[in-house]
Nucleic acid binder design. Structure first.
Lengths: 215, 215
DNA sequence: TCATAAATCACCCAATGGGGTATGTTGCTT
DNA sequence: AAGCAACATACCCCATTGGGTGATTTATGA
């Protein structure tokens, strides 16, 4: 079965070239090519694509906005962003909007086809330079990675409140004063918190709280 | 000019095979092949690599730790992680430690060579599945941007290392074992860390370390 | 050469924290 | 009315941590 691809690209030369490449290659079928995203809904409904090749720089609705709309309305459609620039701000916006991958306009045709197949199969192609930027965030320590998923530890409101005070660095006595309860009560709550978080020390609890946005 | 490659890989068969492939291919020169990272510093100084091919699963010092050390000491060296499994946790750790990219062990030789050339040229080869996970982190807002600024507390290398172990939740005894020093020495370092960070407890130190990307 | 910083080890003492167990009051839900 | 979860309090025991003081070795630079 061919992969059905729709193109959103304002430059007619590029648009036609892409369409020609797709239709001239076995396994790919360009079912629509559009100069802008102003009628994105009809465009999608008519072309019924598996994968959308989206130019990020378009007149009218930007590729980012169209991406967001398509992802909300047709979540099964994979979107591959293409742009001439290596602008990491735009890239992040597009990825946040729901794009599955990203490719630069001067990548050779075979990379386009590979990338389309890859998103179609659930992958996430990113060009080397973009990947490098993404990794740059990690190695530059400008980010804190947050473990995804299970952040619901069923802490009660009071427990969250005390955990927050712990994160702020207070000792039991201070926490007791601030929460208007006794020292022993603080300790009882803390013990419960530890059990729920599956930790055995204050610093582990603080770490989990910070990283997972508890408290 | 050939790309100088050093290999860290505990499996002798794999190590020899990689070495043979590299030395048998024009443009690549394997200048060292090591079974573990225990003498990583001498290994690097002797082989003077442009790119290091690092096994993530090694006896003794793990590939992740060696990666961190090499990146700190020889920041111009590119590190390509190789692993048998698609374990995203380990891969993230390695990327955070400073690896430029990674490759799976059952990838064919030409992919190895491509990946080496790519990191050498400043790229960042990442497989689709890992790229997807990376994107997931960004789009799911699991990433916390940290305001840059006064994060220079003049911690020594050793102090940063111990702080990292503290962040990981180890107690003094464990840290002593892991750092191959005595309990009392750990405490001495910790006291110095507290003074430099202007804190007075483990949890405060952990909090600062996480939030400001120390360690 | 002298000073300095880093890294290592040690001992003392007091404060803090962690685990267990127990008891009581609310207030909501079944 | 009984059950339950959250909240509150108290006591015991001992492990861990934090602060101070002092010491040696090594390396680096003024």
């Amino acid at each position: 079965m061919d992969i059905r691809v729709a193109i959103f690209e304002d430059n007619k030369l590029v648009r036609d070239a892409l369409q020609a490449i797709l239709n001239g290659t076995q396994g790919y079928d360009c079912t629509g090519a559009f100069a802008d995203g102003n009628q994105w809904e009809q465009s999608i409904q008519r072309s019924k694509p598996d994968v959308v090749l989206m130019d990020i720089e378009m007149p009218g609705l930007s590729g980012i906005e169209v991406t967001r709309h398509i992802c909300e309305t047709f979540p099964e459609i994979r979107i591959l962003i293409q742009t001439a620039f290596n602008d990491s701000d735009k890239i992040f916006q597009a990825l946040s909007a729901g794009a599955s991958g990203y490719i630069l306009k001067n990548d050779p045709p075979h990379k386009y086809l590979d990338a389309i197949t890859e998103v179609y199969n659930g992958g996430a192609p990113i060009s080397a330079s973009v990947a490098k930027k993404l990794l740059g965030f990690f190695s530059n320590k400008n980010v804190v990675l947050v473990a995804p998923g299970n952040t619901d530890y069923q802490l009660s409101d009071r427990e969250k409140e005390l955990l927050r005070l712990m994160v702020e660095g207070h000792n039991y006595k201070d926490i007791a004063d601030k929460a208007f309860i006794s020292y022993e009560t603080v300790r009882t709550h803390v013990k419960h918190i530890y059990k729920k978080l599956h930790v055995a020390s204050r610093s582990e609890a603080v770490m989990k709280a910070i990283q997972q946005g508890l408290s």
